[in-house]
């Protein structure tokens, strides 16, 4: 249960907002839930609604609107390659395609071992360092810039090693 496990963090988040504006804490709590459960589960929605005294619909409806929230289990790691126009001008589409080919998947799919989902996303404000992507995992989101296919595949290998070590 989020409420028990993260009491201090939830209190800290709530303290940022006026007491009658608890709803403002919904995105931070959704991140918290995603961190704990891997994605936004039905239970998480109910829990957050209870904590913030909201209707579950006011919580759950956000997951489809915001792209960083995932409402179903996918790869543990999301490699989100910017394939938007500025990056594409600098080869991002070809880069994405090649990375995927090496992994035996198509853009938007998850590797067979269920570890990595590779997606094409819109501009990440890293256009001058294309090709670039962000890695979203349960710890957060980190940028990887000036990438090439090899460096990316190496990173994925690294992730795999990390997993098998655990």
């Amino acid at each position: 249960m989020l409420a028990e496990k993260h009491q201090a963090e939830i209190d800290r988040i709530l303290s940022k907002f006026p007491a009658d504006q608890k709803r403002a804490a919904v995105l931070p709590l959704l991140y918290l839930a995603q961190h704990d459960y891997g994605y936004i589960t039905e239970d998480a929605i109910q829990e957050i609604a209870a904590i913030l005294e909201l209707d579950p619909t006011q919580v759950g409806s956000l997951t489809g609107f915001y792209t960083l929230l995932h409402d179903k289990p996918e790869g543990k790691y999301h490699i989100q390659i910017c394939t938007d126009m500025p990056c594409a001008l600098r080869g991002a589409e070809a880069f994405a395609k090649e990375v995927c080919e090496n992994l035996g998947i198509k853009l938007g799919e998850t590797t067979e071992d269920g570890l990595v989902t590779v997606e094409g996303v819109m501009c990440l404000a890293g256009c001058d360092k294309a090709p670039m992507f962000q890695l979203q995992d349960d710890q957060g989101i980190h940028y990887h810039e000036n990438q090439d296919v090899n460096s990316t595949l190496e990173l994925i290998e690294e992730l795999r090693r990390r997993e098998s070590d655990d």
């Binding site: 938007d84 819109m122 501009c123 404000a125 890293g126 256009c127 001058d128």
Partner: peptide, 11 residues
Amino acid sequence: DESEPGTFKDR
């Protein structure tokens, strides 16, 4: 929120 394609100044 800097999200305009091609914009990376705030960052």
